[in-house]
Amino acid sequence: MKAPAYNRRSFLIGAGLCSASLIRPPLGLVSAANAATGVAPTASMRGGSNNYSPNAPLVDNLGKGFWVSGTVRKAGGGEPLSNVRIQIWAATERGGEREPSNHGSVLTAADGTFRLEMSQILPNFGQPHAHLAYDDGAFKTVFLRPVMGSRSDTSVQAHFVLASA
């Protein structure tokens, strides 16, 4: 007797693998958190608040040649948030992370995007990285610390999803 190529066992294994691939990364099409609450809020990163000095002044730029950009959205619905202050600081050619002229703030545009031109970010404490903060009370405080893929990159991105305070 020949076993059929398609039977209950092969169906169950196939179905199990398919559903596993839907839930797990890289696909991750079905997420328990997404299904329940929509867009999940961004968690603060380790070391994100290092050398933070509150209330960095609003600036046009912090130098030339390097761009820090990103988006700010609201947790749940994911709508873009405008006029939100994002504070940015990093170690550059002009000094370390504690150098005051390496700290500045920008406001998000109507579409929730922000960008700030600054001096080239250099490797600091072993990784070329920037620091970004939302710390204004209307939403929960978030500190991000994106690392550049390469030390010769001339831009870095960071995205905020903020939860109501």
Partner: peptide, 9 residues
């Protein structure tokens, strides 16, 4: 001395 929070972390 350069960055107390980074060194402490």
């Amino acid at each position: 001395i350069t960055s107390p929070p980074d060194a402490l972390d």
